[in-house]
Design a protein around this nucleic acid. Sequence first.
RNA 1: GGUCCGGUAGUUAAGUUGGUUAUAACGCCGGCCUGUCACGCCGGAGGCCGCGGGUUCGAGUCCCGUCCGGACCGCCA
Length: 617
Amino acid sequence: MHEQQTVRLQTEVDTHASRTHTCGELSEGHVEHHVILKGWVDTRRDLGGVIFIDLRDRFGLTQIVFSPQDNQAAYNKAENLRSEDVISVKGTVRLRSNDTINPKLPTGKVEVRIEDVLVLNTANALPFSVSSHEEKRNLANEELRLTYRYLDLRRPELLEKLVLRHKVYQATRNVFVKHGFMEVETPVLMKSTPEGARDFLVPSRVHAGQFYALPQSPQTYKQILMIAGFDRYFQIVKCFRDEDLRADRQPEFTQVDVEISFANEETVYNITEDLLATLWKEILDIELPLPFPRMTYQEAITKYGSDKPDLRFGLEIHDLSHAFEGSGFRVFDNVLASGGKIVGINVPGQGDRGRGAMDRLDKDVVRKRIGAGGLVYFKLPSDGSETYSSVKAEVLPASAVEKAVEAIGAKQGDLVLVLAGKDHQVHEQMGALRLHMAKDLNLIPQGNQGPWSFLWVTDFPLLEWDEDSQRYYAMHHPFTSPHPDDMESMFDNPGATRARGYDIVLNGHEIGGGSIRIHNRDIQSQMFKLLDIDEEEAERRFGFLLKAFDYGAPPHGGIAMGLDRIVMLMGGTENIRDVIAFPKTQSAQELMVQSPDIVDDHQLNDLHIRVEMPPEE
RNA sequence: GGUCCGGUAGUUAAGUUGGUUAUAACGCCGGCCUGUCACGCCGGAGGCCGCGGGUUCGAGUCCCGUCCGGACCGCCA
């Protein structure tokens, strides 16, 4: 092995006074001031007789200059300084000559000539580069960056996101305090609620065989607080769901949790809109037009095939069933006969796509990824030649194709994509295809320069039918109030009952959701009945809440917002890990501390737990 | 549980139809350089091509398995 010859500097005790300035604040006004700066060596430029170092802390960069004329000892030390060494320097602020001003740095009009330097700590050669100057260089892969998260967090780009997050906490608290809300902490060790996501469980030492659960949300506690008369509650709170991860989903995440007494939907919408408008105004200096637009769940599914539609681009879904009635095309006829729908989107400017591209779209996207039966498409070539149908005219008459093309409003040069299937399902599939096409054609703006497409999605269904278990599940949760106009349908047509539930959507991401709750014992009983929860089970699982309802529960409702997602979108990233200091990988591991991990047997014994490993295949 | 993409010096990438000594840039080490600012110039070191197996005279390259990372589906009241 070749030994590295570097002479590492001896580290020194910091005998300097506290820093007088950060590395981001010196300017012309400080010229001739004696200053003390402390920070990390970002880049070092050794010109032989003079050494420049960009000193970095979280506030910025300042160029410091070592020259034998200023101080020989300091210059000698500077010769051996390396990236990320931590130093304290004493020196004098000097104006840079006109030709040496660095317009890229806020501190670029000045520099500090160093009279004394202390090496507070040295740094090994880094596994990847973290310099403030590295923005244009290729980023190390995320696995490595997560393993050395403390280095990754030194990068201004990531630091910026966490500063943004900090500002969101502060502004959020201010908004709620302004509106008379009270911040209350609820337990992190609570009770498992089998419905919904999988719980993270915490074994009890004192109660053998029993478990706490980490909250999926403080739902029941916040309702109890309303019954306690707290009137308006909020909390910035960690929540936990043991489900598989996504780009915008972590197993532990932060909610802005809100509950309001004597509230209706408008109360919740107003507060939420004020919060979001304030965040955007104070932090991004962007004025959001209020109120946010609203759309019913039904419309969102019908027009966009999603309960969180991204309205920043068109490609709306059209129902083409009528155009294909009696077309004689067996596939379509069968779908229509069984009550299904034929839906399409018009993709402008794509009418000249090649056969190969369309085949791949059908095979790889429509069938494989989206899981639809197959794609039918019509191309309207840009040269004005005859419409091309993917289904031969002998099978699907040209007249039907013309009707559909007209119904959807396709013009020369456009491409019409058509799917057929079960009503709700085919809309969702087309929604997925719509998103795919938008991404493929770069119709979705990136970054945080807007547009900001906020949307309330309202009138969610109360219940969701599960084919596997042949029963209803609560779409939101079992305490969501049915829509006042749908009280009867709760008894005669449960599946069609709308709820007083709503989501707030931003640019196609669900950033919050909530409901007006049930505070009437009879309606709650009927809800449990629909959910196939008998009295005994209701008592066991929610007895405390039902009992509380009997002691004077005010009407109430609320919302919970996903703080991580809000910060993510404000920060212009699509990666939730970028706004969490210590996030987990897709397989739910934290690579720096290497969690989860095995524990000692005595710990397991204390908890009355025996581990049985899954059989190895 | 499934589909897809990726894994090659410290880092980011290239690597042809399977063929001699696996390239480049940055970083690192040594030297030179008194106004740089992603300083520059000269030189050098640095590789279990993720791991295991197979095919082949020969594998970074082809096949199978596996691990890790990522995107997505399922899942996420």
